[in-house]
Simulated assay, not measured.
Amino acid sequence: MANLKTLDVFFSSQSFHEEELRNKVVVVIDVLRASSTIITALMNQAKGIIPVEDMGEASRISQSVGSDNLLLCGEKDGIKIEGYDLGNSPFEYNSDTVKNKTLILNTTNGTKAIKKAVGSAELYVGSFLNLSTIVQTLHEEEKDIVLVCAGWRRRMAIEDLLFAGNIVHKLGNGSLHPEARDGAKVAFGLYDKFRDNIPEVIHSSNHAVRLKDLTDEKDVDYCSQTDICDILPVLNDGIITNFYAKKEV
């Protein structure tokens, strides 16, 4: 059963040191858009996703693997990287494109947060798209839980914090532990205030406004949906796969 007293929330990938995640279960959250894109790719039967921190790492891995079933994917400041196969819109990750492919993913915020959290005991990727699956998984965890919001360029992103608050709210059945950590309190309070208007709040967020200047508004609409799948992305040996697909093998 999840320990709600020790449950913590970090507001960006810059708000913690790697040592703070040792022996803990971590959920990395980047609603707009890396988490949502990773979930969508796995939903459309991508073989796995290799998160990288920068273009140099992506290039080294792609050269060493050299497979026809490998796709270079990602964005810098919201824009698809020149020469890459795919950007970071979940709509690019359809079944015809990603099925049975391994994806190298490089994003401005999300994959950097994942890389920083690799020393945790278990690392999952969450967004509103797989909310209930994440909550169900965390309910069964005995280790301490940390929700890591990727944020945007070292700053808080309200959509990530809203999702973290949604998790805290559901794990506590609508109540906050009296000795809850400050991060969990803030996330819970934010979600409790805006819980009836999640899509509207996401659309008006700083990150969404920036994104809509660069791409179609449909990305924000898509990422604001709740529970469209039961995908559980988990990182093992540097590759993110669907936990349930792995269990079925």
Rank of each mutant, 00 (worst) to 15 (best):
Y222C: 14
L131F: 13
F243R: 11
E20V: 07
K115S: 04
L171P: 15
H177V: 06
I114N: 01
L147G: 00
E18T: 10
S62L: 13
K80M: 10
I39W: 03
P178A: 01
S120V: 05
G110F: 09
T111F: 09
N166A: 12
Y84A: 04
K212W: 07
R181F: 07
A46R: 00
T6F: 07
A34C: 08
M156I: 15
V118E: 06
S67K: 02
K218F: 08
K170L: 14
V98C: 04
K247T: 13
T107W: 11
T241F: 10
C223L: 03
L161Y: 15
L211F: 12
A208N: 09
F194Y: 15
L211M: 10
E18Q: 04
K143G: 09
G238E: 00
G165D: 03
T241I: 15
A187I: 15
S127I: 05
C229N: 06
L72C: 11
N100H: 09
N173E: 06
D160K: 04
E57H: 04
F91T: 03
K80Y: 08
R33T: 08
E53D: 12
P199T: 14
T102H: 01
K5M: 07
P178Y: 01
N236Y: 09
N242R: 03
R154D: 15
E200A: 09
I39E: 00
